[in-house]
Design a protein around this nucleic acid. Structure first.
Lengths: 336, 336
DNA sequence: TCGCCTTATGTTAGCGCTAACATGGAACAA
DNA sequence: TTGTTCCATGTTAGCGCTAACATAAGGCGA
């Protein structure tokens, strides 16, 4: 009775109860308690019941920090994204998290904000927590970051791209080909003056190269390229900076929708099909929103969720195919 | 020369180099290396330089797992959200992460997927990593989860709501009042047949109650309530299930935009101002997208980012005001 | 009856680091 | 000279847990 007065969740000193406090209360050694937590089948039913009782009485919560140090397994995965807000990467994080959580892994999330210095810093911070794998969007921006990851000797999964010399594993799609596919389509549609709007991050730039190369190969003049900062607001006004353009490839759906909003204000948007649009617009990402607006948004559909799940799977395997191309799909709707 | 042949990042046994290996190479004790890492000012410049050299040569990456165990500080914060994808919560995660990262804290991210069982499970998993605080959207769904958090004796911040009996700190807004504000506005606009669409999660339900109570208090008949699952697709078809309704409050902007898409197909959407809309639509969240579509979306604007930043601040303080109402704002555009 | 396996539990050592408390010397006032 | 203080560094012990190796007791075939 007296020990029941101890507040649950606090040991004798008011600190969180430990394995050995549970052990003492249950009259067993601490390794037995450890086994009840991790491999209950190895413990005799009555012993197990006694231990479980003691854990409940004390409000015991295992300390994975200590466990990780002792076993050299942290059961955690580091995840690095440029940004998690308003972004297509959130699907990837959700996908990998859904896959990893049932396996007992936690996700340590970090954002680079498209800043190489910050990326190296958070990469080092991530690594110092000894995750069992790292999943990142894209590839390290610096040689230093790359070195850090190589030396970590854990599975590294680069996503949303198909780098030529990956550190380890890859789950993504060919951004260059995506640009090519869009240009091909616009050319086939008879568009003449192409433009590209988007950021100048590595993946966006690869989309641009594919887009430009294909346009040039088709005999068109070099498309214009408008580099926007991360704020969509820029894309609303973008059409004013692109006179005479009759087709635009936006590096992501948010830019595309912003651009269409600008077109609408300028009276250059129709509710009819692609053929009726004075200016064709193609996005990338296939946000759900794209199907809900008018005209519906044509886009390169990419399965962010599948990228995340595949990346998670790749962290658990050592051998096998380490380069998964999830592909993309040109989804044609009414905007272009 | 010979030791330079050791691959960086690997100690004698191929494992990651440790503090004491660095110490030996630099000819100092391990505590000195530890000080160079954590309190460099306490170490003499030449000693420091020698240690830094040794760290670089060996590719030393501090092991925060061991450090955390020794110091009882993990420098991590657990974050629990219903879902991170396509969601207004991503802004909150970004905000708190931006605030916490410079302070040396890592974010351990977990998703409940609006599932109480999963929530309790990930809460326990989070706690076993001994975070120094927990930030969550909403409040624990179960008594068990609540108990777990209380016993953890760390700052707990509940967000996106203003619970009557919070566990510890709160950063949010009054969802009930948001519902009231929307109903008031629609009544003032002369709307008669109101409806609410959204999920049946606690916050959505509170919005509904405010909305309903205010409608009834204004002498209107009880609004209809359509509970949608997490897929927006439901909201597109929602208008068909709400005949004769002339105003709709959607629990979030995604539902609102989906609903508008359905209205458009039914010929019930105008490009003109709110007064011209056969059916008024008000959302919640103020997604950037809402300003880019036509008609522009009227919405309850909530600063998800500020909620995250405020929550992060609350994890660092013990005293002071622990209940921050960030408020909301009814932003009127063309949809209602 | 003996040896050998199986099952249940325990003992020991140590993961890599840091808190707390020495230690030894230089600087300096009385 | 003799404390006293400060600075730079070291020693010791231990955080809470688990891997690896005992140990003990029963079962069982030959």
């Amino acid at each position: 009775m007296s020990s029941d007065l101890t507040e649950p969740g606090t040991g004798p000193s008011g600190a969180a109860p430990t394995l050995s406090e549970v052990a003492k209360r249950a009259g067993v050694s601490s390794i037995t308690v450890s086994r009840v937590v991790r491999m209950p089948d190895l413990v005799a039913p009555e012993t197990r019941a006694r231990v479980e009782r003691a854990m409940r009485d004390l409000g015991y919560v295992p300390n994975l920090v200590a466990g990780a140090l002792a076993s050299a397994r942290t059961n955690s995965v580091g995840v690095l994204v440029p940004t998690i807000a308003n972004s297509i990467f959130a699907d990837t994080v959700q996908g990998l998290s859904d896959k990893l959580e049932p396996l007992g892994f936690s996700v340590i999330l970090a954002q680079s904000r498209y800043d190489a210095v910050r990326e190296d810093r958070v990469l080092a911070a991530l690594l110092s927590r000894r995750p069992e794998a790292i999943i990142m969007v894209g590839s390290p921006a610096t040689e230093e970051g790359s070195r850090l990851l190589r030396n970590a000797r854990i599975p590294i999964v680069e996503t949303w791209d198909l780098p030529a010399n990956p550190i380890d594993a890859v789950a993504g799609f060919d951004n260059y080909k995506a640009g090519v596919a869009v240009a091909k389509h616009l050319v086939a549609q008879g568009r003449k003056q192409l433009a590209f709007i988007g950021g100048d991050d590595p993946r966006g730039t690869r989309r641009w190269f594919g887009f430009r190369d294909e346009a040039l190969a088709s005999g068109l003049s070099e498309p214009r390229r408008l580099i926007l900062d991360r704020k969509d607001s820029g894309s609303v006004a973008a059409h004013a900076r692109l006179p005479d353009v009759d087709a635009v490839f936006a590096a992501n759906d948010a830019h595309a929708i912003g651009f269409m909003s600008g077109l609408r204000k300028a009276g250059l948007l129709r509710d009819g099909p692609a053929s009726a649009q004075p200016v064709a617009v193609i996005g990338l990402g296939d946000l759900e929103m794209g199907q809900l607006i008018s005209p519906t948004l044509s886009t390169i559909s990419v399965h962010g969720d599948a990228i995340g799940r595949t990346a998670a799977t790749l962290t658990q395997e050592r051998g096998g195919e380490r380069r998964i191309d999830l592909g993309f799909e040109l989804v044609l709707r009414d905007s272009g």
